[in-house]
Protein backbone atom coordinates (compact mmCIF):
# COMPACT_ATOMS: atom_id res chain seq x y z
CA UNK A 1 0.00 0.00 0.00
CA UNK A 2 1.48 3.39 -0.94
CA UNK A 3 0.21 6.73 0.20
CA UNK A 4 -0.10 9.84 -1.97
CA UNK A 5 -0.57 13.21 -0.32
CA UNK A 6 -2.93 15.88 -1.61
CA UNK A 7 0.01 18.27 -1.89
CA UNK A 8 1.79 15.99 -4.37
CA UNK A 9 -1.31 15.79 -6.55
CA UNK A 10 -2.03 19.50 -6.26
CA UNK A 11 1.49 20.58 -7.26
CA UNK A 12 1.77 18.46 -10.36
CA UNK A 13 -1.77 19.16 -11.57
CA UNK A 14 -1.26 22.88 -11.01
CA UNK A 15 1.77 22.99 -13.32
CA UNK A 16 0.00 20.94 -15.96
CA UNK A 17 -3.09 23.20 -15.95
CA UNK A 18 -0.94 26.28 -16.47
CA UNK A 19 1.07 24.60 -19.19
CA UNK A 20 -1.97 23.28 -21.07
CA UNK A 21 -3.61 26.72 -21.07
CA UNK A 22 -0.57 28.82 -21.97
CA UNK A 23 1.85 26.70 -23.97
CA UNK A 24 0.78 25.26 -27.29
CA UNK A 25 1.91 21.70 -27.95
CA UNK A 26 4.96 21.35 -30.21
CA UNK A 27 3.10 19.52 -32.97
CA UNK A 28 0.44 22.26 -33.12
CA UNK A 29 3.05 25.03 -33.33
CA UNK A 30 4.91 23.10 -35.97
CA UNK A 31 1.73 22.62 -37.99
CA UNK A 32 0.93 26.33 -38.01
CA UNK A 33 4.45 27.35 -39.04
CA UNK A 34 3.71 26.44 -42.64
CA UNK A 35 0.17 27.91 -42.67
CA UNK A 36 -0.17 31.01 -44.83
CA UNK A 37 -3.96 31.46 -45.03
CA UNK A 38 -5.95 34.22 -43.32
CA UNK A 39 -4.75 35.16 -39.80
CA UNK A 40 -1.52 33.15 -40.20
CA UNK A 41 0.56 35.85 -38.55
CA UNK A 42 -1.82 36.37 -35.61
CA UNK A 43 -2.16 32.64 -34.90
CA UNK A 44 1.59 32.10 -34.88
CA UNK A 45 2.26 35.15 -32.75
CA UNK A 46 -0.39 33.99 -30.30
CA UNK A 47 1.76 30.97 -29.41
CA UNK A 48 4.72 33.12 -28.44
CA UNK A 49 2.76 35.86 -26.65
CA UNK A 50 0.88 33.26 -24.58
CA UNK A 51 3.98 31.32 -23.62
CA UNK A 52 6.13 34.38 -23.01
CA UNK A 53 3.66 36.16 -20.78
CA UNK A 54 1.89 33.10 -19.32
CA UNK A 55 -1.39 34.25 -20.84
CA UNK A 56 -4.11 31.84 -21.92
CA UNK A 57 -3.93 30.81 -25.59
CA UNK A 58 -7.70 31.15 -25.77
CA UNK A 59 -10.07 33.24 -23.66
CA UNK A 60 -12.21 30.12 -23.27
CA UNK A 61 -10.12 28.27 -20.72
CA UNK A 62 -12.77 25.61 -20.68
CA UNK A 63 -14.41 23.26 -18.28
CA UNK A 64 -11.63 21.05 -16.93
CA UNK A 65 -12.05 17.32 -17.21
CA UNK A 66 -9.90 14.85 -15.30
CA UNK A 67 -9.49 11.17 -16.00
CA UNK A 68 -7.82 9.67 -12.98
CA UNK A 69 -6.26 6.20 -13.16
CA UNK A 70 -5.38 5.05 -9.69
CA UNK A 71 -3.39 1.93 -8.97
CA UNK A 72 -5.58 -0.16 -6.71
CA UNK A 73 -2.95 -0.29 -3.97
CA UNK A 74 -2.61 3.47 -3.75
CA UNK A 75 -4.21 5.26 -0.88
CA UNK A 76 -5.11 8.95 -1.16
CA UNK A 77 -5.14 11.48 1.64
CA UNK A 78 -8.42 13.04 0.56
CA UNK A 79 -11.10 12.44 -2.09
CA UNK A 80 -9.38 13.20 -5.39
CA UNK A 81 -12.24 15.39 -6.61
CA UNK A 82 -11.76 17.76 -3.68
CA UNK A 83 -8.05 18.21 -4.41
CA UNK A 84 -8.57 18.68 -8.14
CA UNK A 85 -11.35 21.23 -7.72
CA UNK A 86 -9.26 23.23 -5.26
CA UNK A 87 -6.39 23.17 -7.71
CA UNK A 88 -8.56 24.37 -10.61
CA UNK A 89 -10.12 27.14 -8.51
CA UNK A 90 -6.67 28.40 -7.40
CA UNK A 91 -4.98 28.21 -10.80
CA UNK A 92 -7.89 29.87 -12.61
CA UNK A 93 -7.98 32.66 -10.05
CA UNK A 94 -4.20 33.20 -9.88
CA UNK A 95 -3.60 33.17 -13.62
CA UNK A 96 -6.71 35.08 -14.69
CA UNK A 97 -8.11 32.18 -16.67
CA UNK A 98 -11.79 32.60 -17.47
CA UNK A 99 -14.42 31.31 -15.09
CA UNK A 100 -16.82 29.65 -17.49
CA UNK A 101 -18.95 27.41 -15.29
CA UNK A 102 -22.56 28.15 -14.34
CA UNK A 103 -24.04 26.54 -11.24
CA UNK A 104 -27.02 24.94 -12.96
CA UNK A 105 -27.86 24.59 -16.64
CA UNK A 106 -31.50 25.55 -17.28
CA UNK A 107 -32.99 28.02 -14.81
CA UNK A 108 -30.57 30.61 -13.43
CA UNK A 109 -27.19 29.83 -14.99
CA UNK A 110 -25.32 31.80 -12.33
CA UNK A 111 -21.53 31.74 -12.74
CA UNK A 112 -19.85 29.84 -9.90
CA UNK A 113 -16.93 32.26 -10.12
CA UNK A 114 -14.32 29.55 -9.58
CA UNK A 115 -14.45 27.54 -12.82
CA UNK A 116 -15.47 24.58 -10.68
CA UNK A 117 -16.81 22.00 -10.36
CA UNK A 118 -14.60 20.14 -12.80
CA UNK A 119 -15.70 16.84 -14.25
CA UNK A 120 -13.74 14.04 -12.60
CA UNK A 121 -13.68 10.39 -13.62
CA UNK A 122 -11.89 7.99 -11.29
CA UNK A 123 -10.86 4.50 -12.34
CA UNK A 124 -8.99 1.86 -10.42
CA UNK A 125 -6.33 0.09 -12.46
CA UNK A 126 -3.83 -2.72 -11.98
CA UNK A 127 -0.73 -0.53 -11.89
CA UNK A 128 1.33 1.09 -9.14
CA UNK A 129 0.74 4.55 -10.58
CA UNK A 130 -1.51 7.46 -10.00
CA UNK A 131 -1.95 8.96 -13.45
CA UNK A 132 -4.14 11.97 -14.17
CA UNK A 133 -5.16 12.99 -17.67
CA UNK A 134 -6.29 16.60 -18.00
CA UNK A 135 -8.53 17.96 -20.75
CA UNK A 136 -9.21 21.70 -20.97
CA UNK A 137 -12.43 21.60 -22.93
CA UNK A 138 -13.72 24.72 -24.67
CA UNK A 139 -17.45 25.23 -25.10
CA UNK A 140 -17.47 25.72 -28.87
CA UNK A 141 -15.99 22.32 -29.59
CA UNK A 142 -17.90 20.64 -26.77
CA UNK A 143 -21.16 21.57 -28.47
CA UNK A 144 -20.17 19.24 -31.31
CA UNK A 145 -20.17 16.10 -29.19
CA UNK A 146 -22.36 13.47 -30.82
CA UNK A 147 -23.80 10.14 -29.74
CA UNK A 148 -25.21 7.86 -32.41
CA UNK A 149 -26.81 4.53 -31.65
CA UNK A 150 -26.38 2.67 -34.94
CA UNK A 151 -27.51 -0.77 -35.99
CA UNK A 152 -25.11 -3.54 -35.01
CA UNK A 153 -24.28 -4.57 -38.57
CA UNK A 154 -23.64 -1.08 -39.92
CA UNK A 155 -20.79 -1.09 -42.46
CA UNK A 156 -17.73 1.10 -41.95
CA UNK A 157 -18.86 3.42 -44.75
CA UNK A 158 -22.28 3.77 -43.13
CA UNK A 159 -20.69 4.66 -39.80
CA UNK A 160 -18.47 7.24 -41.45
CA UNK A 161 -21.41 8.74 -43.35
CA UNK A 162 -23.46 8.89 -40.14
CA UNK A 163 -20.66 10.65 -38.27
CA UNK A 164 -20.10 13.06 -41.15
CA UNK A 165 -23.75 14.01 -41.44
CA UNK A 166 -24.15 14.38 -37.68
CA UNK A 167 -21.29 16.89 -37.57
CA UNK A 168 -22.32 18.63 -40.79
CA UNK A 169 -21.06 22.14 -41.30
CA UNK A 170 -21.02 22.78 -37.56
CA UNK A 171 -17.43 21.61 -37.60
CA UNK A 172 -16.75 25.19 -38.75
CA UNK A 173 -17.80 26.38 -35.28
CA UNK A 174 -15.42 24.19 -33.29
CA UNK A 175 -12.22 26.09 -34.21
CA UNK A 176 -10.81 23.92 -36.99
CA UNK A 177 -8.50 22.19 -37.72
CA UNK A 178 -10.13 20.03 -35.06
CA UNK A 179 -9.06 16.88 -33.26
CA UNK A 180 -11.64 14.11 -33.22
CA UNK A 181 -11.98 11.22 -30.81
CA UNK A 182 -14.35 8.41 -31.72
CA UNK A 183 -15.58 5.82 -29.25
CA UNK A 184 -17.23 2.70 -30.64
CA UNK A 185 -18.99 0.04 -28.63
CA UNK A 186 -19.49 -0.41 -24.90
CA UNK A 187 -22.65 1.31 -23.72
CA UNK A 188 -23.65 4.82 -24.75
CA UNK A 189 -21.92 6.43 -21.78
CA UNK A 190 -18.80 4.30 -22.14
CA UNK A 191 -18.59 5.16 -25.84
CA UNK A 192 -18.48 8.83 -24.90
CA UNK A 193 -15.76 8.12 -22.36
CA UNK A 194 -13.74 6.29 -25.04
CA UNK A 195 -14.19 9.21 -27.43
CA UNK A 196 -12.75 11.48 -24.73
CA UNK A 197 -9.76 9.25 -24.12
CA UNK A 198 -9.20 9.14 -27.89
CA UNK A 199 -8.40 12.87 -27.75
CA UNK A 200 -5.20 11.87 -25.91
CA UNK A 201 -2.18 9.97 -27.18
CA UNK A 202 -0.96 6.75 -25.66
CA UNK A 203 -2.06 3.24 -25.11
CA UNK A 204 -5.08 2.57 -22.90
CA UNK A 205 -4.51 -1.18 -22.49
CA UNK A 206 -3.52 -0.53 -18.87
CA UNK A 207 -7.04 0.80 -18.32
CA UNK A 208 -9.05 -1.84 -20.16
CA UNK A 209 -7.06 -4.56 -21.94
CA UNK A 210 -9.91 -5.13 -24.40
CA UNK A 211 -9.79 -1.63 -25.88
CA UNK A 212 -8.96 -1.82 -29.60
CA UNK A 213 -7.81 0.92 -31.94
CA UNK A 214 -9.03 1.46 -35.52
CA UNK A 215 -6.38 3.28 -37.53
CA UNK A 216 -7.77 2.69 -41.01
CA UNK A 217 -11.24 3.76 -39.93
CA UNK A 218 -9.76 6.92 -38.41
CA UNK A 219 -7.84 7.78 -41.55
CA UNK A 220 -10.86 7.22 -43.75
CA UNK A 221 -13.02 9.42 -41.54
CA UNK A 222 -10.36 12.14 -41.52
CA UNK A 223 -10.14 12.14 -45.31
CA UNK A 224 -13.92 12.27 -45.66
CA UNK A 225 -14.26 15.18 -43.23
CA UNK A 226 -11.38 17.05 -44.85
CA UNK A 227 -13.08 16.87 -48.24
CA UNK A 228 -15.54 19.51 -46.97
CA UNK A 229 -12.79 22.17 -47.23
CA UNK A 230 -14.01 24.06 -44.20
CA UNK A 231 -10.35 24.67 -43.48
CA UNK A 232 -8.34 26.35 -40.75
CA UNK A 233 -10.48 28.92 -38.87
CA UNK A 234 -13.30 27.88 -41.25
CA UNK A 235 -11.65 30.10 -43.86
CA UNK A 236 -11.05 27.47 -46.51
CA UNK A 237 -7.27 27.01 -46.37
CA UNK A 238 -5.62 23.86 -45.00
CA UNK A 239 -7.13 21.01 -43.04
CA UNK A 240 -10.53 20.87 -41.40
CA UNK A 241 -9.51 17.91 -39.27
CA UNK A 242 -5.99 17.53 -37.93
CA UNK A 243 -6.34 14.16 -36.36
CA UNK A 244 -8.86 11.37 -35.79
CA UNK A 245 -8.34 8.63 -33.24
CA UNK A 246 -10.88 5.82 -32.79
CA UNK A 247 -11.13 3.36 -29.92
CA UNK A 248 -13.44 0.35 -29.63
CA UNK A 249 -14.75 -1.76 -26.77
CA UNK A 250 -16.90 -4.91 -26.46
CA UNK A 251 -20.59 -4.16 -26.84
CA UNK A 252 -24.06 -5.70 -26.68
CA UNK A 253 -25.25 -7.96 -29.55
CA UNK A 254 -28.03 -5.48 -30.37
CA UNK A 255 -25.92 -2.37 -30.20
CA UNK A 256 -23.37 -0.16 -31.91
CA UNK A 257 -22.89 3.02 -29.91
CA UNK A 258 -20.76 5.58 -31.76
CA UNK A 259 -19.62 8.63 -29.82
CA UNK A 260 -17.76 11.57 -31.30
CA UNK A 261 -15.82 14.10 -29.24
CA UNK A 262 -14.42 17.13 -31.00
CA UNK A 263 -11.63 19.31 -29.68
CA UNK A 264 -10.41 22.63 -31.07
CA UNK A 265 -7.09 23.02 -32.86
CA UNK A 266 -5.28 23.81 -29.61
CA UNK A 267 -6.15 20.38 -28.13
CA UNK A 268 -5.21 21.47 -24.61
CA UNK A 269 -4.41 18.15 -22.99
CA UNK A 270 -2.06 17.19 -20.22
CA UNK A 271 -0.92 14.15 -18.32
CA UNK A 272 0.52 13.87 -14.86
CA UNK A 273 2.18 10.85 -13.29
CA UNK A 274 2.10 11.43 -9.57
CA UNK A 275 3.82 8.12 -8.80
Amino acid sequence: MSFVTSKEIYRSVQDELVRANTKAREEIRWYFQSYRGPFWRELNENFSVAEGEKLPLCQDTGIVEFFVFKGFRIQLEEPIEKVLNQCVADVYSNFGFRKSIVCEPILKRVNTGTNTPSVVHLFEVETDMLEIYVLVKGGGSENLTRLLMLEPNAEVDEIIAAVQSSLGMDIANACPPVHIGVGLGGTSDFAILLSRLALFDGDFKFFRPNIVEYNEFSEKLREKLNSSRVGIQALGYGDTVLKVRSLGFPTHIAALPVAVSVDCFLNRIGRVKVR
Binding site: T22, F39, E42, L43, E45, N46, V49, A50, E53, L55, P56, L57, C58, Q59, G140, C175, Q233, A234, L235, C264, F265, L266
Partner: peptide, 13 residues
Protein backbone atom coordinates in the same frame (compact mmCIF):
# COMPACT_ATOMS: atom_id res chain seq x y z
CA UNK B 1 -16.78 39.61 -39.61
CA UNK B 2 -14.75 36.81 -38.15
CA UNK B 3 -11.80 37.37 -35.82
CA UNK B 4 -9.14 34.70 -35.24
CA UNK B 5 -10.21 32.11 -32.65
CA UNK B 6 -7.92 30.39 -30.16
CA UNK B 7 -5.83 33.53 -30.46
CA UNK B 8 -6.71 35.48 -27.33
CA UNK B 9 -3.22 36.24 -26.02
CA UNK B 10 -2.39 37.95 -29.32
CA UNK B 11 -5.74 39.78 -29.50
CA UNK B 12 -5.14 41.11 -25.98
CA UNK B 13 -2.29 43.17 -27.47
Amino acid sequence: FVAPSGCAAYLST
